[in-house]
Design a protein around this nucleic acid. Structure first.
Lengths: 216, 216
DNA sequence: GGAAAGATTGCAAATTCGGCAAGATCCAGT
DNA sequence: ACTGGATCTTGCCGAATTTGCAATCTTTCC
């Protein structure tokens, strides 16, 4: 039996694969750390590779730019979303499933305070912003497929799954933007919940009154 | 009187400014035309500059990449949105104003059929997609400020204006994506209107029935 | 008219990118 | 365990791209 377990482990991930993942992770971490500590300017493939104990040539085998490495490192944490969404019961309304999965994922991944300062950087630098937005776009694509599968719709023909995924994305994005400014002093989960509630109820509602904060 | 007019013209835009705008426009047009005719691959600052009758060094003074020039050319047309939104009466509900301004702007700018093929290109190329998304992001920022001003909310503290602006963005984006696929044979204004309607009413509505495609 | 400010251009230095091959490490079959 | 093949890392080098700078020309302002 032990053999079988070992075998399964090996099938799942060989040593080679694990090492590859490890260096990728090391590069991401190094990139993020450098960005946080010294800002974006002056970050070069060399420094990142240096900090990750690989050659600069290796860095280029994994990423085509420092920005890509940084953002990839941030996204890394958010990979849990698909799993969290699939974990919801299929009988639950898709919107509710989506909201719960989103809030759960975001709250978990944002516990690391570093990500807040990183997000603040992203808002200031066009090159980072571009990477971040495309990453979100790709995530949104995946999400749309899951939603389509759950709701029995077709990504390529119906607009509903795309729309739902895109709305989820901007709920996350708006919340993160606001949160990373640090002015509100509110929890990220709280902000995101408000955003999702706003979207769920429809936006043609009265505008001026803060729609959520004053619940009860 | 003629003198006064000339004088006012001059105050508004000096000859120098006008020339600068002109070369920028020429570069954008050249970039878009080249992209449409020969695809993205093989487009180089040299060719664009050549087509616009300036040196390649000058191109770099304006844009840092061919992609930036292309997308900037597309965005050029959409600059009317802020004006269109401000033109709406302040007594009108903000959501209605937004929808009208969006549909008007998009219908006007998309009358040029070239933009459809360009949008199709954008969906296929990561570098173009990145530029496109950041351009949309910047537009969204401006929009958020206008909305905040209109609704008496604060961009830096309330989530509502950002949300509204971002939702407008994805409505536009989704509609353009669907439209540029060319499968629907429908008008872009029509598609956008239905997307906005869906968003306005709230997304926690039944999922499985295609809410857009089968409208009466 | 003339000086200051700004735009365009060409050139050259510097940087980045990507292919290639050598060496190291891992995997699978015996 | 051994071995042949596959994959990853790395240094090196040439090509392409980007940037800095100074010269030249145009516009603006006094």
């Amino acid at each position: 039996m032990t053999d079988e377990v070992v075998l399964r482990e090996r099938d799942r991930l060989g040593l080679r694969e694990r090492k590859k993942l490890a260096t990728r992770q090391a590069l991401c971490d190094a990139a993020m750390q450098l960005a946080i500590n010294h800002g974006i300017e002056g970050i070069t493939p060399e420094r990142i590779a240096d900090a990750a104990d690989v050659s600069s040539r290796t860095f280029r085998n994994y990423f085509s730019s420092p920005e890509e490495a940084i953002i990839s490192g941030m996204q890394e944490s958010a990979r849990a979303l698909p799993a969290n969404l699939r974990a919801r019961p299929r009988t639950e309304p898709i919107w509710d499933s989506l909201c719960i999965a989103l809030v759960t994922t975001v709250e978990e991944t944002m516990s690391a305070r570093d990500l807040m300062s990183l997000l603040a950087l992203v808002r200031c630098h066009r090159s980072l912003l571009a990477e971040h937005l495309t990453a979100l776009e790709e995530a949104s694509q995946q999400l749309a497929e899951i939603i389509a599968e759950r709701t029995g719709t077709d990504v390529n023909r119906d607009i509903y799954p795309r729309m739902l995924a895109d709305v989820a994305r901007i709920a996350v994005k708006s919340s993160l933007d606001l949160w990373s400014q640090g002015n509100t002093g509110r929890d990220i989960g709280e902000i995101l919940t408000e955003a999702l509630d706003l979207l769920g109820r429809g936006l043609s509602v009265p505008a001026t009154a803060p729609p959520i904060t004053g619940s009860t």
